[in-house]
Amino acid sequence: MSLLVVEDLHTHFVSRDLDNRVRTAKALNSVSFALAEGEVLGLVGETGAGKSLTAFSIMGLLRPPARIVQGSVRFAGQELVGLAPEQLNAVRGARIAMVGQNPRGALDPLTRVGEQIVRVILAHQAVSREAARAAALEAMARVGIPDPARRFRSWPHELSGGMAQRVLIAMALVNRPTLLIADEPTTGLDVTVQAQILDLLRTLVREMNMAALVITHDLGVVAHYCSRMAVMFAGRIIEMGPVEAVFGTPRHPYTQALIAATPENLTLDGASPLGGRPPDLFALPPGCHYVDRCPIATEACNALPPWRSVAADHGALCHRVES
């Protein structure tokens, strides 16, 4: 059974302009994917494609004017869309944990880091403070923080980015979640530290048998780290399949361009490697979102492309892909 099922998820930014007319930025458009227990899915796409927004939508972390206008997120059989914050809090941080792209900004500047881990434990487990403290120290040791007892009393501003990310990983794992969402967990870290953090995450995900949604710009991370991958473009998943299949025979023209353009280091580096501009979310084309940049577009592409499966678990959202 799937642990996480995201189905037909639409997240929009609904705001009003100066003339009080409603403007809608369609940031996520019918995003669907599923994640089995223990599976590691990579989510890639250029900046602004909607990767973080997908994560926030799953976790119920959207802030106005963003909201889910349609679709469902089922986690272990439970519908999360529309849950009250108190009910969501039984899931967030306990069964689904998240590690973000700005570790130093993600820590409360006025609370010692150890206390922050303790706080997360006490929010979800009925244990004493001493037990929580012991568990926090153990988690800190486990993520490779040297001298945890001393670091426990550190302030966030005293930590390096890599150390802060280790603290956040400890915080994410301390309640033994079954799903980890890692949103560009190594952005902004030194290259050597990036590798360490990735190794740490991989080890922990394996040891704890977690499922993981790994959001990244770095196709190399996906290649080495994930079993399946999904490619996003302008709020849609436009291709999804096993990593070898997508890298080996990419079907969607965007994926093809992406992989062709990044052969050496396999990184998207934030911007589009293809030079094109992402489409305006306030005025998306009616059919395929990629139509303006696609070299093989036809008249038909002005209509919504169908999801074409090329194998049992590999498919793309394109008129010109043959099933």
Binding site: M98, D108, V120
Partner: peptide, 20 residues
């Protein structure tokens, strides 16, 4: 700020976040 969002992601209660 980001740390409030990450506190929500960690499932901290409304009261704890309010204090924060």
């Amino acid at each position: 700020s980001e740390f409030v969002r990450s506190a929500q992601a960690a499932g901290l209660s409304g009261a704890v976040i309010r204090r924060m």
